[in-house]
């Protein structure tokens, strides 16, 4: 399962103060399409494992890279949660 929280945390650390909100507004239509409610506050409380459709996670990564202005580190999308 893709660790999308890690991407948001990376964006917050490396981007501006409102990086997460900017990502959310960019991917808002996909969130609506998938009936997913995400806010900056819920992301802060989010557990690391959250199932999101691949189309949405790709969009989040893309948006994060636009907002921060550099590529998401390779280790973030590759991180797999343990099934143990």
């Amino acid at each position: 399962m893709f660790d999308v929280k890690g991407v948001f945390d990376w964006a917050k650390e490396n981007g501006e103060v409102k990086a997460v909100d900017r990502i959310l507004i960019k991917v808002m239509l996909l969130l609506i399409k998938n009936k997913i409610t995400l806010t900056a506050a819920t992301i802060e409380k989010m557990e690391t494992r959250m199932a999101l459709p691949e189309e949405l996670t790709r969009a989040i990564v893309r948006a994060a890279e636009e907002v921060v202005g550099k590529p998401v580190p390779d280790f973030l999308p590759a991180r797999e949660t343990s099934n143990v």
Binding site: K18, D21, T39
Partner: peptide
Amino acid sequence: AGRQGVEVAADL
């Protein structure tokens, strides 16, 4: 985007 869209816009 309904209320969710308005709220994130409001935050910005």
